[in-house]
């Protein structure tokens, strides 16, 4: 099975250098992202976190090839990204399965685009679905699947073409907390088996720490890289690690970084003094703490 043999971790390097993206409005150009640089080493799991609207999805979409940078460059293995392609698999938050195709049909789609013949497509799809524990559902239509199952199909579909990198845009954002934890475990397992580079966008700090080797934290719009944090937690990772002091320390650090930016994103610095005249009982805490 060629699609499942892990690439030697020499492939799948993502370089985003001095990336800037602005769009034109009547008031003039508005910067969405300015001067952001991120790098993903071959086989590395990297997350981008940041307040909503900070442009983390914009960065991911630029790597996918849907957006062209205004300044700077995006390369994958040294090749400039020019439009979307099958070498960069993408998983979307809204599942984005083709409702008119069965689970197997969805997984086969990329291989069909590669002009693989029917029997080898069939074989590849069945193998992948078997690995993801979806064999029983291969002939079901997406509408009859649960959210978690849909996203599993989405990930399998993105991996079927044997991409160099996997891009995930808040893939578990629409799932309930329990399902999300299971999906994180599944994704980790798949990543470890395939040794594929992953660029993962999320606003969930726990998720980012639990999954990643490194986490980039972005500033509020216009988005830039505020910090880069290496996650030294050993692998394989388990749910129990999320209670460890090491994890909680990382969480606290990232949390405060993001909160600063979230407050900025919500409309500038909040002024505690302005609230003094008001009779709001904050239980002795400052507003920033309450928020």
């Amino acid at each position: 099975m060629s699609v499942m043999t892990p690439d030697p971790p020499s492939k799948g390097r993502i370089d985003v250098d001095n990336f800037a993206l602005s769009y034109d409005t009547l008031e003039g150009p508005v910067e969405a992202v300015c001067n952001a640089s991120i790098h993903v080493n071959p086989g590395e799991f990297v997350s981008i976190v940041g307040p909503s609207g900070c442009g983390k999805s914009t960065l991911l979409n630029a790597v996918a090839g849907f957006l062209k940078p205004t300044k700077g460059g995006v390369t994958v293995d040294g090749e400039a990204v020019d439009g979307p392609g099958a070498d960069r698999g993408m998983v979307f938050q809204q599942y984005s399965l083709f409702p008119w195709k069965t689970v197997k049909g969805n997984v086969e789609f990329g291989l069909k685009m590669k002009h693989l013949d029917k029997s080898s497509r069939d074989r590849a799809a069945r193998t992948l679905l078997g690995l993801a524990g979806l064999t029983a559902f291969e002939n079901k239509y997406p509408d009859s699947l649960s959210g978690g199952m849909k996203q599993r199909v989405g990930i399998v579909r993105a991996l079927a073409t044997g991409p160099k990198v996997l891009l995930l845009d808040e893939p578990f954002g629409a799932l309930d907390a329990q399902t999300r934890v299971i999906m994180q475990q599944i994704l980790t397992n798949m990543w470890q088996r395939l040794k594929i580079s992953v660029l993962f966008v999320t606003h969930d700090i726990d998720e980012a720490i639990f999954l990643s080797d490194r986490v980039y934290c972005m500033t509020a719009r216009p988005g830039a890289i505020k910090a880069e944090i290496t996650i030294p937690l050993e692998r394989p990772r388990h749910q129990s690690m999320m209670m460890s002091s090491e994890f909680l320390g990382l969480r606290r650090g990232l949390m405060s970084l993001i909160r600063e930016e979230s407050i900025k994103a919500m409309g500038g610095e909040l002024n505690d003094l302005a609230l003094d005249g008001l009779s709001i009982d904050l239980h002795g805490q400052s507003l920033a703490d309450v928020l």
Partner: peptide, 8 residues
């Protein structure tokens, strides 16, 4: 976009 990412 999903189709484009799959090489369509």
């Amino acid at each position: 976009r999903a189709a484009q990412c799959l090489g369509a």
